[in-house]
Simulated assay, not measured.
Amino acid sequence: METDSPTIPKRTLADLLFILFLRLVAVSCFWFGLQYWAMLVGYSLVGAGRFDLLSLPWKVASTSLAVLFPVASLGLWLTVSWGPVIWVLAAGGQVLMYGLLPDIFGPNKLIILLHLMVAAVYCIFRLLLWLEKRRHRRQVSVDLP
Rank of each mutant, 00 (worst) to 15 (best):
T3Q: 09
D4R: 05
D4T: 15
D4Q: 13
D4G: 14
P6I: 10
T7A: 08
I8H: 04
K10M: 06
K10D: 07
R11D: 10
T12V: 08
L13V: 11
D15V: 05
L17H: 03
L17A: 12
L17N: 02
L17Y: 02
F18H: 10
F18W: 10
F18K: 00
I19P: 00
I19T: 05
F21L: 04
L24E: 00
L24D: 00
A26K: 12
A26C: 06
V27S: 04
V27W: 01
S28R: 11
C29R: 05
C29W: 01
W31H: 13
Y36T: 11
Y36S: 12
W37Y: 10
L40I: 13
V41R: 11
G42T: 14
Y43K: 14
Y43I: 14
S44P: 02
L45K: 04
V46C: 02
G49L: 07
L56F: 15
L56W: 14
L56P: 05
L56E: 13
L56K: 08
W58K: 11
K59W: 06
V60A: 12
S62A: 15
T63Y: 01
A66I: 11
L68F: 07
F69V: 05
F69G: 03
P70N: 04
P70V: 03
V71G: 02
A72P: 02
A72E: 08
L76G: 09
T79H: 09
V80T: 14
S81C: 03
W82T: 11
P84M: 06
P84C: 08
W87H: 08
A90V: 12
G92I: 12
Q94E: 15
V95W: 06
M97V: 10
Y98L: 09
Y98E: 11
G99Q: 05
L101A: 15
L101Q: 14
I104M: 13
F105G: 15
G106A: 09
P107N: 08
P107H: 08
L110G: 06
I111H: 07
I112D: 04
I112W: 04
L113I: 06
L113D: 05
L114Q: 09
L116S: 03
M117T: 09
V118C: 01
V118A: 10
V121T: 12
Y122F: 15
Y122L: 10
I124L: 07
R134M: 03
V140T: 07
V140P: 00
V142W: 02
V142T: 01
L144C: 04
L144G: 00
